[in-house]
Design a protein around this nucleic acid. Structure first.
Length: 420
DNA sequence: TCTGGGGTCCTAGGACCC
DNA sequence: TCTGGGGTCCTAGGACCC
């Protein structure tokens, strides 16, 4: 049996832990740049605010119902996530962290617990007690069914917060309850296709001819069908696989058209991305640089360009990568556009010790490695960008809008809460 | 007039996830 | 005025090989 445990309205719940006055009130957390709603309290959901609704389009609703707003505070959410996961891991040895607010648990070795619902309740109470975050537990024989069971618990057994589908009858009930579009792995495109063919719920899909599923939904559909039938077809991986790509991209706080401004932003993103590479212990063999205009602005000339360049020697050195990023930007930049976003993706990653040196390479790599280490140490000990490259500039033009940011309560000493 | 049949590797783009 | 930022996996099709 597998459990999927996820945090309820995670970002909203994190804000509420440190500002209890927000409990019981409609609250939303906005995406970067305060663009759109990405986490909603139940009260906000009841007002009709949808995932991804643009902030400026729901301003009336917000004012009318005094909806509370927070900018996203990833330092806080990341740290709270680790605490939640740590509590759960103390109950279950074999787990797989799936996202910032979700974790799969392999319960097959926990035979001591013949009552898995009771275990779920116990975990839920512990997480709440030690972190203040409410979670929901869905239990079933496969990952896809566990996801389904979790959704079921949210809708039908919210007070308990746990649902365990451990008999065929209960699984059949889950399947009948779940619309095809709510199945994990079925997005809007495939949902359309399935509805057109008359499949309304997971129970309809589970009886679909295998041949047809294989042909129209390819191997992913085939695996999904197996999982629905209770046959595990998705790997359970204890350890996090090495990342294949590392990306850093951001919208600007305002539209920019001068190349210089975009160079500043791109250099800053490249520096952030390079630091992520070093933290991961990998080097990039390829670099993708992209620029985009705002495609919601129909009055603007649109441009969305990206280019991938090969690096002669795989690297994670900030100055070297910035040089290549600037060169790539030269190749794709065009005057006369209002740009909204730029970013980089480090591709084709290799573990640092496996980097193949170049025969004609002139970069002093061991010296640069030491320098990067010193820079990282300073920027971790003090604050991001304490040491940085001048090409990042000093302008704030491209910086994010974050008008409703809460404090990083758990990651900065000067922000620790006092308890009296 | 008329031009094969295997392979591999890589990339772009789509679909999905949170 | 104003619409996020990461990721993964899969397939089709092109380029290339003999």
């Amino acid at each position: 049996m597998i459990a999927l445990i996820d945090c309820n309205n995670f970002y909203v719940s994190c804000e509420r832990v440190f500002q209890p006055v927000l409990i019981g009130r409609p609250l939303i957390v906005l995406s970067n740049n305060d663009g759109c709603a990405i986490s909603r309290s139940n009260e906000a959901k009841d007002l009709g605010i949808k995932m991804g609704n643009a902030h400026f389009m729901i301003k009336d609703l917000i004012q009318q119902h005094n909806v509370q707003i927070r900018s996203s505070n990833y330092a806080l959410y990341g740290d709270m996530s680790q605490r939640v996961m740590q509590v759960i891991k103390s109950f279950v040895p074999k787990t797989e962290v799936y996202s910032i607010d979700e974790i799969f648990c392999d319960l097959s070795e926990l035979e001591a617990y013949n009552d898995l619902t009771a275990l779920g309740i116990q975990i839920r109470e512990a997480v709440k007690k030690y972190t203040g975050i409410p979670v929901t537990v869905g239990i079933a024989p496969t990952k896809v069914l566990a996801k389904m069971s979790n959704k079921y618990a949210k809708k039908l057994t919210a007070e308990i917060g746990v649902h365990c589908a451990d008999t065929q009858d209960l699984i059949d009930c889950l399947l009948r309850f779940t619309p095809v579009g709510d199945i994990w792995g079925i997005g809007s495109e495939i949902e359309k296709l399935l509805l057109a063919k008359g499949f309304k719920t997971a129970a309809d899909l589970v009886n679909a001819p295998e041949e047809w599923v294989r042909k129209t939904l390819t191997v992913k559909g085939q695996r999904l069908l197996n999982e629905l039938k209770g046959i595990s077809s998705m790997l359970f991986t204890d350890e996090r696989p090495a990342k294949r790509n590392i990306a850093t991209m951001r919208s600007f706080g305002t539209l920019l058209s001068a190349k210089k401004d975009i160079q500043h932003a791109l250099a800053a993103h490249m520096a952030t991305c390079a630091a992520k590479l070093r933290k991961e212990g990998t080097c990039a063999r390829k670099l993708q640089v992209s620029i985009e205009t705002n495609n919601y602005r129909t009055q603007d000339k649109q441009l969305s360009h990206s280019i991938v360049i090969d690096l002669p020697v795989a690297t994670n050195s900030t100055p070297e990568l910035i040089r290549y990023a600037m060169k790539a930007l030269d190749m794709i930049f065009k005057e006369g556009h209002n740009f909204k976003k730029t970013g980089v993706v480090a591709l084709d990653l290799v573990p640092q010790p496996n980097v193949q040196m170049g025969l004609f390479d002139t970069v002093k790599r061991s010296r640069e490695k030491k320098l990067m280490k010193a820079v990282d140490n300073i920027n971790v000990s003090f604050r991001k960008d304490t040491v940085r490259y001048s090409v990042q500039g000093y302008s704030d033009k491209w910086k994010l809008q974050q008008q409703h940011l809460s404090n990083p309560y758990t990651t900065r000493f000067d922000q620790l809460r006092e308890v009296s």
